[in-house]
């Protein structure tokens, strides 16, 4: 569709003019579905070579609730995940693939610091694993086993060898699958392991999810310096896990907290912080 749109434009205006847009290797425009934790989400078209920062902070208007940018996944479920250090990277075919991601289907999912990177790659892998036709061994068997490892890690049952096994499986599935679905399926896992390995290790060795996402692997604590005693957290909690009052301030009761994160998301002051389980 995108190609046909470009064809008609090129026929009207000529290829020379088309080449003035974009970069030398990737002329023309790119279309993305910008979504995730950004203020403005939607379909966008930019010239090739526009930087990620321009897209996310310019067109996207920055991160929702002005939280910290964590990563952006480009190219859909088969794509890769890029951390903040590449925000100034120009978006084109060559650069993205050098960094371990792709233009792919034009997905651009932005996440902030409350998204767990392991959970995030599990989300994409779940999609490809379900879409596998089941014909070839690496895709049929390998994606499931990778998913099971990620599941283990996000539930606090991971072991250090899991990372090696994940990489081994990713490499096998990626290089031996029969079709494109299988060969790109490990990309989210590979790219997150490349840029966020520490977060995986934290999950495994400390049973700690710093994003406050993996249930049972974090504690939520209210930073009283930021809290303005608005009581939204208490009103939103379904588990009666927040005690206190607007007068005396609030306290999260770890033993009652189910980790649903409603308080974290509703707090207007970003006053709720994530800590390892004591």
């Amino acid at each position: 569709m995108k190609t046909w749109a470009a064809v008609s434009w090129i026929l009207q205006h000529g290829s020379a003019k088309f080449r003035t847009i974009g970069t030398e290797d990737s002329p023309g425009t790119a279309i993305f579905s910008l979504t995730g934790n950004v203020k403005n989400a939607g379909l966008i078209e930019v010239a090739m070579g526009t930087t990620l920062r321009e897209v996310i902070y310019g067109i996207g208007g920055g991160i929702s609730k002005d939280r910290a940018f964590k990563a952006v996944q480009t190219g859909g479920p088969s794509g890769g995940c890029l951390p903040a250090q590449f925000l100034d990277t120009p978006v084109d075919y060559k650069t993205l693939s050098e960094l371990g991601s792709i233009m792919g289907s034009g997905g651009m999912v932005v996440i902030d610091d409350t998204t767990c990177i392991v959970d995030f790659s599990k989300f994409f892998l779940q999609f490809t694993q379900q879409e596998s036709c089941g014909k070839c061994v690496p895709c049929r068997e390998g994606t499931l086993r990778m998913l099971e490892i990620l599941e283990r890690i996000t539930t606090g049952k991971g072991k250090m060898s899991d990372i090696d096994d994940l990489l081994l499986l990713a490499e096998t599935v990626g290089s031996t699958s029969l079709c494109g679905l299988g060969t790109t399926a490990p990309n989210p896992v590979v790219s997150t392991l490349r840029y966020f390995r520490d977060e995986y290790i934290q999950h495994i060795s400390n049973r700690y999810c710093s994003a406050g996402s993996c249930v049972g692997m974090f504690e939520l604590v209210i930073d009283h310096n930021k809290c303005n005693n608005c009581s939204r957290c208490q009103r939103g909690c379904s588990f009666d896990a927040i005690s206190g009052s607007r007068d005396e301030g609030f306290l999260i009761l770890t033993e009652s907290c189910e980790g649903c994160r409603v308080c974290l998301e509703t707090c207007p002051q970003n006053a709720i912080e994530v800590f390892p389980v004591k």
Partner: peptide, 17 residues
């Protein structure tokens, strides 16, 4: 080496099921 490693993993995967 590359082919043999992949073969090993593939067989390990078949055995898992």
């Amino acid at each position: 080496q590359n082919a043999e490693t992949k073969r090993q993993t593939l067989i390990e995967l078949i055995i898992a099921s």
